[in-house]
């Protein structure tokens, strides 16, 4: 059974945000409005967290793509009273929107603040309403949502592989952000396969995890040499 994980090489990331756009388009993220943005409640499962050091003009900037860290010990799943969020047998932390009662316990429990609550009825203005991805649910007001490693792509890949009588190839299931990354700084694959690129990179001396001291054991690994 594969254990899906991701490695993000911050030394390669240019902060172009192609992954952010790809994620939003793939997962039917509502555009939001200036008012919602002013409140800091724009929903983007994948965001770029800028870290700027020094004083202008002598600054260095790190652009860190952050999304659900797909923890092995996910705090969000421990507090969900209705099992709307849980860790499945492949290690992916799922979010079942129609089971969610909107209590927001998980939103508050996530130490990375990477779960999003729909405070308003989401809107897709004009033609964008006709261009939503049919494989991904349109979340309604009052439910929490988050990145699930584009799980719908895994379903499609599994179906195709089974029709052809084989197992899923590593290049068949990749999330939208990985596909869009121009510098190939995001690598995705099976962490339990010692020969996979993601597994090899995750063992790099440059590897670290966000807030690893909390013991959440994220499956998103970052690489940085500085």
């Amino acid at each position: 059974m594969p254990r899906w994980g991701m490695v993000i090489d911050l030394d390669k990331c240019t902060g172009c945000q192609a992954c952010v756009v790809a994620c939003a388009a793939e997962t039917n993220a509502p555009l939001g409005s200036p008012d919602i943005a002013a409140m800091g409640r724009i929903i983007r499962w994948l965001q770029i967290l800028p870290k700027i050091e020094g004083e202008y003009p002598y600054i260095t900037a790190d652009m860190m793509p952050i999304m659900c860290q797909q923890c092995e010990a996910p705090a969000c799943t421990y507090v969900c009273p209705v099992a709307a969020t849980y860790r499945n047998h492949e290690g992916t932390v799922a979010q079942i929107y129609w089971r969610c009662i909107g209590c927001r316990y998980c939103v508050n429990a996530c130490p990375y603040t990477l779960k999003w609550f729909n405070w308003w009825k989401p809107e897709w203005p004009g033609e964008t309403a006709q261009a939503t991805n049919p494989d991904v649910e349109l979340r309604d007001k009052g439910v929490t949502e988050k990145c699930c490693f584009c799980h719908h792509r895994l379903q499609t890949a599994k179906e195709k592989a089974r029709a052809e009588g084989r197992t899923v190839r590593p290049d068949e299931y990749i999330p939208a952000c990985v596909e869009a990354c121009a510098t190939r700084c995001i690598v995705f694959g099976d962490l339990d396969d010692p020969d996979s690129e993601v597994s090899r990179l995750a063992r790099s001396p440059r590897a670290f995890h966000l807030l690893e001291e909390l013991g959440t054991k994220p499956k998103v690994t970052y690489l940085k040499s500085r």
Binding site: Y86, N88, H89, T92, A94, I96, Y97, W98, R99, D135, V136, E137, C148, H151, H152, Q155
Partner: peptide, 10 residues
């Protein structure tokens, strides 16, 4: 066969 919620719920 799987009864994982994510297998059928998107």
């Amino acid at each position: 066969v799987t009864t994982d919620c994510m297998a059928c719920h998107r």
